[in-house]
Design a binder for these strands. Structure first.
Lengths: 342, 342
DNA sequence: AAAGAGTCCGAAAACCTTTTCGGTCATTGC
DNA sequence: GCAATGACCGAAAAGGTTTTCGGACTCTTT
């Protein structure tokens, strides 16, 4: 006999089946399985045994329908392929997965139409909350639809100030980077960054310059904005060495840029870190640990950001909705490219 | 008044609300909204209007409870952080998202206990099917629990031959790579690969050697197994040049290894591709396009693999369950590192 | 004008679980 | 022995949707 969908295995056991096998009513079975009041120990034992025998698993749909809560949340990303969504997603999944919450994953591909479609689908599935993950740290418009569940924006803050957003602290990241270079004894520090259109680039530069001023120093040359690519790093490093041969540290806007800078320094015969220290941002493992020497980088703690977003959503579901933009701190991961100058 | 969870917004509108506003019964409202038989056009219009006014969105829980189908699937990955799960996940999400299916994402972190926990949770949510994504192409044990919904294994095949698995064709990938190098006029081809423990490394090497034999050639030296790291590529390339100075092409086990090989070739004064052609596997964009010259690489079409897994799951849900291991073809992405030797 | 056909709508059951409330039984104290 | 109490169990409703079936109404045909 062909295995049609209807006949695939025996239909999952229901509470009625368990109750019948245990010789009790469904009400008693429910109470026994949920550890509720006033069930005789012996009866409970019978019910548990029956449930195990039928490998009973309560239907979450029915439960959710009744309770008005589903124990699910939606994770709406606009750019799954990107480097930054993933760790955030990991952290969120981590924080939720520890409890009883399951995560719906949706990728809007940066398309507003698709985003609305996904939001509608999630609402129809009665998610308890929503996390919206952006693909850059630039603010994004809030969700188009009116949603009656809590929403937390992660990485990219919402443009609406009354929304709750959790973002990395790029300004402080720039500050910490420069402070590390200064602690390594560097004083002639240049900054080769990525695309100026990105607030991440501007914020990091602002933080870096603030730290320099605080130390009574100034940047060597201007901030060199360009692209988030190795090729830009190579080219910009060449120009920098031509114009400012005395530079003793290069802070790079990303690890990709830093890889390019390292290449050019090597070719020009500058030793790293003895002659010039190099730092990146993002702590992208494959780039940072494959470099020669291994690359010191600022980690944005994205996984922690994801966990923070999940926690914030929990709180918003259970009680009051938080507001405004919160930041997650970053940290410097020290590797060979910034060993202290003897 | 404090906004308690109960008072957050007005409770979502139900079909009864719509029916009442339209002045019809819930049955009629349901039929009108679902385009069913025998509803007067004018009545339907009234219902649609009422639904729009209340921004009614049908409760998927109730629908799923009744239909026995939820329109959800579980995506169980063992290694979300890894490079390979993500595109597969993208492709699957893509194929599902086009329809009416939502995806539950779970990361088991490579832990069997956690995996069982997630499977139980997914079954309790009555998913219609399951995709299990491995973190390497080595076979993995099948799911521990008996599941009464279709399961498709992606990337890592199941050890059980009666399960349905969809994997990249690594043997053919190796073959295609060597054929490309031969087409570029190379005859003295060496192979520097990654960790021998991985079947991906062994399969690619086997395919490469088969293609060489078919062309009446032989590998220069032995296959150099090592680690999936740039450092190994640099070291192995050094040894290779010492032992086999006449080599005119290096096939690398991954793009990371290839980056290391490129570095050493440059330092030894070998021009790429004029003197030595270099190829990688994986087509990891950030590594391949950042290299000098840009790196020719074999793309495993992982996103297509994810789509194929989703399609296979669709079929298994609707009808008969397929069996055995299916492969997805890969393709060579040509860049500067293998330009034809004049 | 009556019968038949066709069109449209509504009542009710089904899906599965949880919770409330009432009922049964035994036990205990007087 | 009787009433009160407590322990345990079961009936029923609720949650929102879809579907089936029967009923009511209208229009056409003879």
């Amino acid at each position: 006999m062909a295995r049609t969908p209807a006949s695939r295995g025996t239909r999952a056991a229901t509470l009625s089946d368990v109750a019948r096998l245990a010789g009790v009513s469904v009400a008693t079975a429910s109470k026994a399985l949920n550890g509720r009041n006033h069930v005789h120990a012996q009866t409970r034992e019978r019910v548990l045994e029956a449930a195990a025998q039928l490998s009973f698993s309560p239907n979450s749909l029915a439960r959710g329908l009744l309770a008005g809560r589903t124990g699910t949340v939606g994770l709406l990303t606009s750019d799954l392929v990107g480097r930054f969504s993933l760790p955030i997603l990991m952290g969120a999944e981590d924080a939720f997965g520890a409890g009883q919450v399951s995560v719906f994953l949706c990728d809007a591909r940066g398309d507003a139409i698709r985003e609305r479609h996904h939001v509608q689908a999630l609402l129809s599935r009665r998610v308890d909350g929503l996390i919206v993950v952006g693909s850059s740290t630039d603010p994004r418009p809030p969700l188009a639809d009116a949603v009656d569940v809590p929403v937390v924006y992660a990485y990219a803050p919402s443009e609406a100030p009354e929304d709750l957003s959790i973002v990395p602290d790029n300004v402080n990241a720039g500050r910490m980077a420069v402070e590390h270079l200064i602690a390594c004894g560097r004083t002639r520090i240049a900054h080769i960054s990525g695309d100026r259109q990105y607030s991440a680039a501007r914020d990091r530069a602002a933080g870096a310059q603030a730290a320099l001023e605080a130390a009574g120093l100034a940047l060597v040359g201007e901030v060199a904005y360009g692209a988030w690519e190795e090729g830009w790093g190579r080219a910009a490093a060449g120009m920098l060495l031509d114009r400012e041969p005395g530079v003793d540290a290069v802070l790079c806007g990303s690890d990709q840029v830093a890889r390019g800078v390292l290449d050019t320094l090597r070719e020009r015969g500058r030793r790293v870190p003895e002659d010039v220290a190099v730092m990146g941002f993002d702590n992208w493992d494959v780039l940072a640990t494959g470099a020669r020497p291994q690359l010191t980088s600022v980690d944005m703690n994205l996984e922690e950001l994801g966990r923070a977003a999940a926690r914030a959503l929990f709180e918003a579901i259970d009680a009051e909705h938080g507001r405004g933009v919160h930041t997650v701190q970053c940290r410097v991961v020290v590797r060979g490219s910034t060993a202290s100058a003897g």
